[in-house]
Design a protein around this nucleic acid. Structure first.
Lengths: 291, 291
DNA sequence: CCCGGGAGG
DNA sequence: CCCTCCCGG
């Protein structure tokens, strides 16, 4: 077992993130390229920082994925302090907001050259038994005000009631965000479809991004023990735990999802996946208002 | 522990049932008395025959209760073969119908000098995982045709779906019994109130006898770990598992419930109750038709 | 035959 | 962070 493995050097991590030419950051072409795009890229991922197994390889793989896509917004769940420190030390081009200081928590990473941070907010879940909360950031992207949210809703089937309380709170904050803001929530919702049905479906004005894209089967299940054996669970169980919700602004250009893909599906050399969850990589564009 | 205790003699059991003068059966006054009553007495009881703890004392207590009330109809659940044999050997004044031959099962006991047996029927529950079924007897009581039913619906909260399937089947058989028959179901339904609500409440024409009597609080909970410690469950949980349903005949005199009382609430010398369930003792009378 | 927690698959 | 089984409370 490598569970007690410690990290000796940040060199391979920097390399994983910046690529082989990581010493040439200042003239990075990729960065210049992506800065010109009007497309908004959002990545949401429960990275299972609580699992210490092969953590070095997994963080390296994680940075490799972050470096590959350089999403404008990265939403993380189950981040732990040690892992956060590593990411902060490498991903200097992002601003980090975190949902908590200790234990495990969420984070919003904002790509500084693409997205302007305005303010942030942490909303408590009064009855959480797992220390969960809602992390919110107001930002500006190409002149468009965005409200970015992430959360890791109460885990496990048995906590359904609390999870739905939290979901209602998320939806309430999405609805009550300033009307000129586009609101994007992304996170590990731990939701089962029947739970959303139980609440009467999505509220008016809030859409599930995966549904907007026509429910593509290949990006449906973000937690899938038929492929992912990080947790060696013998049963094949596939669930759509990780979701993005969108509330478009009532004025100005409306944000539309263009694509959703799952990432982190390649096995690492250590025979582990980066996380027991797949990451969700989603692109959006601002279209003309159609009122 | 007395779990391996065996029964040495039927003498104390006969005494428990017939009373101290049990050798005088032929001139028993009680019997003559009750034969003159037009009141119908029904006793339903899950006697927990699966629990072997102190079984001798418990069967003795059971026979004592049966002897005390001499119900016209006794509906039993969780009867086991050894226990059935004992009851049959003592309660010679009853005709026994049983839902199964082995394992644990239900029974209908018919007091021969008061009730005339006509025919019986066993209805299968196709998807039971606990070997449950519906036992039916057609009888005649003072010239009134009765359809008597008992069952032990699927146990445990987690089997709610199957239990409700079984309940629907019970109600269907109650509704489809001959219209000139009064139908009485009594048994261990394992129902929670929210489950009946989920089915839209009781169907037209079928009543819950406890509700008809004005929901008396003192006979509400038939399974009550705040008093009954046979199962040493530390939590105080009270549920109305055992229920009687009534469908009156469309022609002729209508059966009306007069009283419902819980029995078996005294502790035995062995510090156990007769069963983890209380018994339900219910009296009815035939009133004038009010159409 | 309640509930919750922990282990194993 | 799935499920089922078992156990203790």
């Amino acid at each position: 077992s490598t569970s007690t493995q410690t990290i000796q050097s940040s060199f391979p991590l920097q390399q994983a993130y910046w690529g082989k030419s990581f010493t040439d950051q200042s003239t990075d072409e990729q960065e210049t390229q992506s800065s010109s795009r009007s497309q908004l890229t959002v990545l949401s991922w429960n990275i299972d920082g609580l699992d210490m197994e092969n953590i070095f390889y997994r963080v390296k793989g994680l940075l490799s994925q972050f470096g590959k896509y350089r999403a404008d917004i990265v939403l993380l769940q189950e981040l732990v302090p040690g892992c956060l420190t590593m990411l902060q030390n490498i991903m200097k081009d992002y601003q980090f907001l975190q949902g908590s200081e200790d234990g495990y928590f969420t984070a919003i990473l904002i790509r500084k050259d693409r997205v302007q941070f305005l303010q942030s907010n942490i909303v408590k879940y009064p009855t959480t038994e797992m220390g969960r909360n809602l992390l919110i950031a107001n930002v500006s992207f190409l002149g468009h005000p965005l409200c970015i949210m992430t959360s890791h809703l109460e885990s496990c089937k048995s906590s359904s009631q609390e999870r739905l309380n939290q979901l209602r709170r998320v939806w309430k904050w999405m609805k009550e965000a300033p009307q000129d803001h586009t609101v994007i929530f992304g996170g590990d919702t731990n939701l089962r479809d029947w739970e959303v049905k139980k609440l009467g479906g999505l509220p008016d004005g809030i859409s599930d991004v995966w549904e907007m894209l026509g429910k593509p089967e290949e990006s449906r299940y973000t937690w899938d023990t038929s492929i992912n054996d990080n947790k060696d669970i013998p049963n094949s169980i596939r669930l759509r735990f990780d979701r993005l919700f969108l509330r478009t602004a009532t004025e100005g250009a409306k944000l539309q999802p263009e694509s959703m893909n799952l990432i982190g599906m390649e096995k690492l050399k250590c025979d582990y996946f980066i996380s027991d969850h797949w990451g969700i990589l989603c692109t959006f564009k601002f279209g003309e208002s159609e009122e």
